[in-house]
């Protein structure tokens, strides 16, 4: 009994420590700026623009991840092939590479010295210091999260459902849209949200590729560097509040549909 108690209180203490460790700094930061300062901050055009840019670029990156990542996720869930492990390893790479390295890597293929960068310049596409560059970096860091979530969703669907559908006369396309997608869309949406969240939080790679136009994390960093903690806090509060509300809304929206379905 004593041992059990010791075990229980031990785990309990660890749990409390972890939760406090995560919530305390966040709550402190959220509570720090006064309402007046918050209002003043959001009325600042630069702040508003940076937040809008962060959100829209991240949404676009998530959309691109969805379009490009879905077929790959499906392939990984359904087929066994030589080199599958390697492909999965490559998809994991953006998660493990240090963020500034990602930025440098992207610049090294898109720079003028590289044939690919030359090609992009000829096409009139600029990566360095542009929204295109920001979205590119975001897709790079976010797409693994989408692919993993979508693959998990596809894995959970028995291939037999697709087999039955096809034997009943449905083509592969019809089968995907009538059976696979309706059963996997929740996982896919979860993946989109994760990819979006990851894209919004990216700083290290973006600051190298595009300091301007300024996304919210870069602005927070700049204000902290030039003016100090007090001036960066309100921007941070606005960024995470808006993100939390958006994700919360999405959650509510999807769980409602689950009930009606």
């Amino acid at each position: 009994m004593r041992h059990k108690d010791f075990f229980f209180w031990g785990t309990f203490a660890c749990a409390v420590t972890v939760i406090a460790f995560i919530t305390l700094p966040l709550v402190q930061m959220l509570a720090a700026p006064s309402l007046e300062v918050l209002v003043e901050t959001i009325l600042d055009k630069d702040v508003l623009n940076s937040i809008v840019l962060s959100l829209s670029a991240a949404a676009l990156a998530a959309l691109i991840s969805f379009i490009l990542g879905t077929p790959l996720a499906y392939l990984l869930a359904r087929r066994e092939f030589r080199g599958k492990r390697l492909v999965e390893g490559i998809i994991d790479l953006p998660i493990i590479i240090p963020h500034p390295v990602v930025g440098i890597a992207i610049l090294s293929v898109t720079g003028r010295n590289h044939w690919f960068g030359q090609l992009l310049t000829d096409l009139g596409i600029r990566i360095m210091g542009s929204v295109t560059g920001i979205v590119t970096v975001m897709v790079f860091v976010a797409i693994p999260f989408y692919i993993k979530a979508a693959k998990e969703g596809f894995d959970a669907i028995s291939p037999r459902l697709e087999n039955v559908s096809r034997s009943l006369g449905a083509s592969m396309f019809s089968t995907f849209f009538r059976i696979t997608f309706p059963l996997a869309w929740r996982s896919m949406l979860a993946g989109i949200i994760m990819a979006c969240a990851r894209a919004i939080s990216e700083f290290g790679a973006i600051v190298i590729v595009a300091y301007h136009p300024m996304i919210a994390p870069v602005m927070i960093y700049e204000r902290f560097e030039s003016y100090g903690l007090k001036y960066s806090q309100p921007v941070a509060v606005w960024l995470i509040s808006i993100c939390l509300i958006l994700f919360l809304l999405l959650r509510i929206l999807t769980s409602r549909q689950k009930k009606s379905a």
Binding site: S158, L161, N163, V164, S165, R166, S167
Partner: peptide, 20 residues
Amino acid sequence: LPPEKRGISIVYQDYALFPH
């Protein structure tokens, strides 16, 4: 021939009904 062109139905052991 692809499965959808064969006119052959299959019933699996676990029934594989479409849950949605």
